[in-house]
Design a protein around this nucleic acid. Sequence first.
DNA 1: TGCCTAAATGAATCACGTG
DNA 2: TCACGTGATTCATTTAGGC
Lengths: 360, 360
Amino acid sequence: MQELPVNRIIQGDCVSIMEGLPAGSVDMIFADPPYNLQLRGELKRPNESVVDAVDDDWDRFESMEAYDAFTRAWLTAAQRLLKDSGTLWVIGSYHNIYRIGAVLQDLGFWILNDVVWRKANPMPNFRGRRLTNAHETLIWCAKAEDAKNYTFNYEALKALNDDLQMRSDWLLPICSGGERLKVNGRKAHSTQKPESLLYRVMLTATRDGDIVLDPFFGTGTTGAVAKRLGRRFIGVEREDKFCRLAQARIGRVRTLPPEDRVITPPKRQQTRVPFGMIVERGLIEPGTHLHDYQRRHTARVRADGSLVCADATGSIHKIGAHVQGAPSCNGWTYWHVDVEGRLAPIDIFREQVRSELGGL
Amino acid sequence: MQELPVNRIIQGDCVSIMEGLPAGSVDMIFADPPYNLQLRGELKRPNESVVDAVDDDWDRFESMEAYDAFTRAWLTAAQRLLKDSGTLWVIGSYHNIYRIGAVLQDLGFWILNDVVWRKANPMPNFRGRRLTNAHETLIWCAKAEDAKNYTFNYEALKALNDDLQMRSDWLLPICSGGERLKVNGRKAHSTQKPESLLYRVMLTATRDGDIVLDPFFGTGTTGAVAKRLGRRFIGVEREDKFCRLAQARIGRVRTLPPEDRVITPPKRQQTRVPFGMIVERGLIEPGTHLHDYQRRHTARVRADGSLVCADATGSIHKIGAHVQGAPSCNGWTYWHVDVEGRLAPIDIFREQVRSELGGL
DNA sequence: TGCCTAAATGAATCACGTG
DNA sequence: TCACGTGATTCATTTAGGC
């Protein structure tokens, strides 16, 4: 069997390079392909600054058909490369992930899970025309329907999650700060992924020493995390500048000693429960009247969780402050509901919801 | 124009029934199509009890091609039914959502967001071979790329989320307890959705009195929430037993009084008040001087509502932009009048006029 | 050095009505 | 259909800068 170019970055087109490697030789493939964003004009923040959007050549496609053909080509090559026990991960957004999911099902890949990366700090929607696009989607799949012997480190992920089964929604920050590669003070790559994401992916679906291939290597996050966790990597990247950047980056990474390749579970933070959730779930009906504990002030709850008091409307906190003439107010403890003649602070409903959510 | 069968459940095949309704007549479509689950054999819990999984006739398809054809058929009929300003919501899991997303993009629907419903209490993965499947995906899309005038209640959703922009990941419980319809002690429908999910969907993308169609009505969650929120519904359901179940359920629902359905109104939808009207009504006299909040710039009001600043004249917006050297400016919030030594934004006069006009 | 405030920034399919 | 004017719009973090 041909020797695999392990722990190396290969420059060139990923399809032809994958076709030149021996079939059935790779344990996992992680792919972060172009998203085909199709951005129109420039976007400004409310303060008039311009958003530094993705406008790279590698994200331009003639048409959706061209994108689908590109997707089919690299997924076909990837499928051939995988061991029968191997799995593939692809990450994307709503612009491209439905194309990719459909094509990989057509090719016979078998989806094991889709995973939602919930961004802790996403870019807001500046024009107020849509929801904040706060997540990206990963598809995790086996080579075929009958490939049952894939690696899934159930116990490790459970340990990572406070001894609860790991769910399909992962809350992780975006890549920023010191981790973000810069060239001349500007971001080196427009779509660098956080190492924590790759860390969790590899902890989920690879074993020590496994071979992980990334056909869209970019700045080499896959390689950096693979090296740190004692996995072997093969990076394929078209652009020379990224190859050199990734090479230098990975050179700086140190492999953890085997006994340290387990991390302590992240601290669970208290779930934020907006007042609207209390209304939405019917614990307080729209139209209910709220009172302060002395019944000096009364406000009415609307369908979207805002309050009305005389001619003022706003959040429980804003209206609480308003009626008191105070600069601020904790609406959760200020406002009460009348339960059979007795006043109960609305905070009890928040506690109820929190206990039902169980720390999510 | 043909009369729409509003607030009714129509029994039959959703494609032929939608084809019989007038084109361009519906504000929103919410669809929860069969998931094409492809379960192999029965699933047992660790204690050997059998999981009551989805194995209904309506969820069986001969092949992926048959599912795609079915998807294309109902989405085509749905697109025809929508008003140009209407939006479509589809919910699915990884088994079917990639097929649906690809088909709807092929048909020209324009994705606005995909939304992740994070289940607060999902079913665990009993075999420990995958991640807990803890979410489902909703795709929200407009009828076409150029349909920009869809309803999005940005301010209401912000209110619902404690004055922060609503994100694309929604944490909501599954449908259980008293909300879950039962027949002879067993769940009446295998995939009943929680009312809180529909509540948020309708709060996001419909206005009072809008017409909401659901081609896979099932137990009628869409109809129940529509009735409660003062929206009109059209339910299409193939099975007689579900039609009757939904009919009875919706009969028990009470519509919220109009004053409780009110949500924080979109600013863009408010009556446009030109600055000239402020001058015309004597709220600001011609000759008055306006200042920015730091008193760095001053402009004089003329009789027609235009401003003069040095040698430049124009609207409050143009002159505001001009003095700042900015490309654009909201003059309503930029310019202030001096009221006994304190600066007040001219927007307060607009609000005064608006309240006097009474929403005309 | 340390603390507080201001500025910068991230995979973004980001107006609309009137004439 | 097009041109133009009005006017609506941001969250979590990190980094830089002032004192």
